[in-house]
Design a protein around this nucleic acid. Structure first.
Lengths: 332, 332
DNA sequence: GGGGAGTGAGAGAGCGCTCTCTGGAAGAAT
DNA sequence: ATTCTTCCAGAGAGCGCTCTCTCACTCCCC
């Protein structure tokens, strides 16, 4: 394999100085057309590609951004496509901007320092933190160190850091209101973990609508896993055998709840209507198909990337969610 | 934010030359203990972290490796956790080696050139290609350009490139043999796409066992999606209403097949036994739970990473698969 | 026609680091 | 005591690039 050509070589071949070659490569307009032409030809002929390390060294930019998943890696890539959607969205924008995506899965405590070291090190122009725990200290640390940071999901402690969040409250409200409109009287919920903003917000949305419609709330708490959905549903049925609807804070738990309901001999939606949250692929294949709230995960990734790349203003953004009505709440 | 300290600063503080500081930072043994001590103290006090760009520039190493998914990104992160497992495995090893993971999702044709440019550019010490299409030209191109490449999945055209593959043939054989042992007489298969090595190998495994056991093969072909599993199953039932078992080349299609069987009024495993392949999370939650073949995806990621990092010899490796027997083939 | 204004190209410094080469001190051998 | 060897620290070049500064040249206006 032959050595990679340098700018010097390109300049020599085009009969110009290195500085001029650099100008052409970087798209400066202040170069005479015929010279630009000559340089471009030399670039093509030699197959020149700029050395990123050299460029970074002088520009102090890295042309890459880090996407950090502080969750234990095992959880990150489960059946939940939320993270996949974010990765895809981020990846699209990053690619468009001709930058690189550095993926960091940092489940353990030690991983924090690794990310911190790496990010404060000029390796990276910005960091996207796909944390679901609002209390994560990492965003604050990095921000204080001067690294551009954008979070997915609103931090639970108010801060001025930019983030992109889903409208969890609104989605939950729409879901529960849908159950109310279907004439359901006793609407229970299986809430998510209350140390995650998504878990908190979705429960708040549920409570808000029930309060308005003068129904009492029936709450069980799960941890977003399928198993916890099953046991939470059993507990709800024990608490209130008369319940006729349940809003489940994510689809995975809703799948578990469906199992528990089947085992308890309840018909869905005849006896009990079920609404989930997330719209995972499996939701369309349950029996009956699951009514759920869709999240714009890819869009979320795109916005995160655009913010961290400074293609749009860093702000605190809320993305709308959408209720997808299927068979688990209505009979055709 | 204060400027990052340079080696120069560290050296000054420790009262040594930059060269000596560099030696200490890079763990050279030929430094007097007290000096090493002094430098380390200065590093700690200043919070020094080496500038990777500067280091790369002189060492010609990038300390990062690329993980490329040439599939359309949409497919990559679907319900199929194979890719997630690979990412996690790769990530673990990369982290351990203190290198970076650059993720490239290059669905479109143009993406190839981007990867090629990026990888032949010294940005990256090696490339892991998570392709499932054995005919992918990218590995060959990169290898020819002198970039270390390791593939996940055996290329369909024989080559000398290193790869890590799953024992698809063996897994399929074990699955079908299991059906034979259960006394099934008419064993059909829903094969995967025949332009993917996994699809081909799993069909070959099926054929081999049927041939040995003197049964005739009944084949329908799907494309690894759930929908294709449903329609393939319908077709099989039309072709041979008497079939009493089906080996499905992946779990997603098996889920679809289960739906078709239910709609056709067949009991599983009473009338028809079903085996899948992959062991996706959903497989344990179907009714009945799905017998399937588990793949060591995380291990695959680890091996891929270790090879590309030269922690183990680059070779053509086959990882064992494991039959997980559940309710879709046996009654308790 | 002369002097500024404007424009485009080159010279050269320097980003932060590694690594070879050199030099000096200390210990071993003669 | 002198030379040789060993060992460790420093000097300095240079990785490939960007960017400022300088300079040469053209153009235009008085």
């Amino acid at each position: 394999m032959r050595a990679r050509p340098t700018l010097e070589k390109v300049a020599a071949r085009a009969g110009v100085s290195r500085a001029t070659a650099s100008r052409v490569v970087n798209g400066s307009t202040r170069v005479a057309p015929e010279i630009r032409e000559a340089v471009n030809r030399a670039v093509d002929e030699l197959g020149y590609v700029p050395n990123q390390a050299a460029r970074s060294l002088v520009t102090q930019r890295a042309d890459s951004i880090a996407l950090v998943f502080p969750e234990p890696a095992t959880r990150v890539f489960s059946e939940d496509p939320t993270f996949s959607g974010i990765i895809r969205g981020v990846s699209m924008e990053i690619e468009e901007a001709d930058k690189q995506l550095v993926l960091m899965l940092t489940g353990l405590a030690g991983g924090y320092q690794r990310v911190e070291r790496y990010a404060t090190n000029g390796h990276v122009d910005g960091v996207i933190i796909a944390s679901m725990h609002g209390t994560d200290p990492l965003p604050g640390i990095l921000a204080r160190r001067g690294v551009p940071v954008v979070c997915s999901g609103r931090p639970s402690v108010p801060s001025s850091l930019p983030y992109v969040d889903m409208d969890n409250v609104g989605g939950a409200e729409r879901a529960v209101r849908h159950l109310v409109e279907q004439g359901r009287r006793r609407i229970a919920t299986i809430a998510g973990p209350q140390d995650m903003i998504a878990g908190i917000d979705r429960l708040n949305g549920y409570r808000a609508v029930l309060h308005d419609s003068d129904r009492r709330s029936i709450v069980a708490v799960g941890d977003f896993t399928r198993e916890s959905g099953t046991s939470a549903m059993r507990q709800l049925l024990a608490d209130d055998p008369e319940l006729d609807a349940v809003f489940v804070a994510n689809d995975l738990m809703a799948l578990g709840a469906l199992t528990a309901l089947r085992q308890a001999g309840r018909q869905v939606p005849g006896d009990v209507a079920v609404v989930g949250f997330d719209d995972i692929p499996a939701a369309s294949y349950t029996e009956p198909p699951l009514t759920t709230v869709r999240q714009p995960t890819v869009e979320m990734g795109r916005r995160l990337a655009r913010m961290v790349l400074d293609l749009e203003e860093k702000a605190q953004v809320m993305l709308p969610t959408e209720l997808i009505v299927r068979g688990s709440t209505t009979t055709p």
